[in-house]
Design a binder for these strands. Structure first.
Lengths: 246, 246
DNA sequence: TGTACATCAGTGAACGCGCGTTCACTGATGTAC
DNA sequence: TGTACATCAGTGAACGCGCGTTCACTGATGTAC
């Protein structure tokens, strides 16, 4: 609903009824596609099924999307945006303590994944065979990582180093790789902090997927407590102030 | 190649030629199916495509497997076994130090995943829509977890506690969940150790998938150094002796 | 050792279904004068 | 305000392809006597 309002608001006043219907239908098609996604999975997303759900003829969809892959791309970008929005909102509401912020955004990411499992699988599951993501999706894909950076940057300003409980050794090869990561998502921070940031980010995505995809076994109960404990451990690893009680 | 020998050796001496051909063809069908898996993904694995690859008619495959799902199940079980074998072999060759054993098995798991990415996706990627894994796959799916337990058990014997650098707080709900995990895969160990063991296991699976599935971005180079650093960090977290130089 | 029979592997045709994409078309909505 | 024209949405048929699974069958291999 939020996004439909956005579309309405950003349209110029001269927009005619046809354009407004078009925007609304575009939104509905994506909604129908998400419903299909949940049934069939990304690899088997079928334009004809989406069209049936819309009570349209399959060829009509080509007025809105260039084909199956274009529709998939739109869904991927919006999924990245949605999970990014959820994480950012949680961060905003968490107060200033970095530890609390990290816990809040991690929990929000997990909650979003359980609300929209097929969309989580779409962006963080196995790649869709035969689908090549265009460059548009990349910027959207780094939002959580950049959010983590914002959490880290106050704690680990390069001019005022906070001690770390466990610091991984940095050899030249790792240093090169970390420099690249710094360019993409992290600011000027010590190699040790960037490395632990990557570990924390990797852990977050991995913990959500492992639990959601059922790799603890099919009869394993959802483990909020375990997820929290792991998240807190990575927060302690990053020496985030306020993590202990979060 | 190893598995074909195994099949031959465990057959009784009275086995006739027909049974031997059957075992060999069963093996070849699975091999062809793995090749198809790499092209199309698990969701789109096609019996007809496998048959074409075997120069057989599709219906002939029903002499060997009850259908598409039965074939998938066989592939899943063998993939779990293969990655388990790789991890166990690495562990065996790593010497006695728990730190070195953990590094060795983690690296072996990552190497196997890069050797057989479609098989990794089959067992640790998003679930195949419409496919329900039978109980047979479960025991195979816990092998890596149980291997980690064997690494942990000497370091953290319950009667001779080793201090942990970071110990997550254990509340009653977490305690209940951890008791269940202990029953499935871990032996009698302190809750803190089991919790960190789950964190380490989760991290291992997550780190391999995040890198393999390209979630660091498409132009990110494979990051052995980063993977090693993360693995070493979890080893330090678990206080595994010998981890520093491994 | 030889023969009659049972078992099994693989064939080929068919059923009934799905898919993405193209194309010429109808009819409604919007625009310019 | 009214009319001629352009734009656009959606239709329906078609192309050429894919799929899993069933079934009656042929012919080869193995078994029992």
């Amino acid at each position: 609903m939020f996004s439909s309002w956005t579309i309405v608001l950003i349209m110029p006043a001269s927009t005619n009824a046809r354009a407004r219907v078009r925007a609304e239908l575009t939104r509905e098609i994506k909604e129908a596609a998400r419903a299909e996604l949940a049934l069939a999975g990304a690899g088997a997303l079928s334009l004809r099924a989406v069209a049936r759900r819309m009570d349209m003829v399959p060829s009509a969809l080509y007025r809105y999307f260039d084909g199956r892959d274009a529709l998939l791309t739109a869904l991927i970008i919006e999924a990245y945006q949605a999970v990014g929005d959820a994480a950012e909102a949680a961060d905003r509401d968490a107060g200033p303590a970095p530890g609390r912020r990290w816990m809040a955004m991690g929990r929000a990411v997990r909650a979003w994944a359980w609300d929209y499992p097929s969309q989580w699988a779409l962006i963080y599951g196995s790649p869709v065979p035969g689908y090549q993501a265009p460059a548009d999706t990349l910027e959207a894909g780094t939002r959580i990582l950049r959010l983590l950076t914002r959490v880290l940057v106050d704690t680990h300003r390069i001019d005022r180093p906070t001690p770390l409980p466990i610091a991984p050794a940095i050899d030249p090869e790792l240093h090169r790789w970390l420099s690249m990561a710094q360019d993409v998502a992290f600011g000027p921070m010590r190699d040790e902090v960037v490395a632990l940031g990557v570990v924390a980010y990797t852990y977050l995505l991995g913990a959500v997927s492992v639990e959601l995809f059922g790799q603890f076994g099919p009869d394993a109960t959802p483990a909020v407590a375990m997820f929290d404990a792991g998240l807190r451990t990575t927060g302690l690893l990053l020496a985030l102030p306020g993590i202990a009680g979060a």
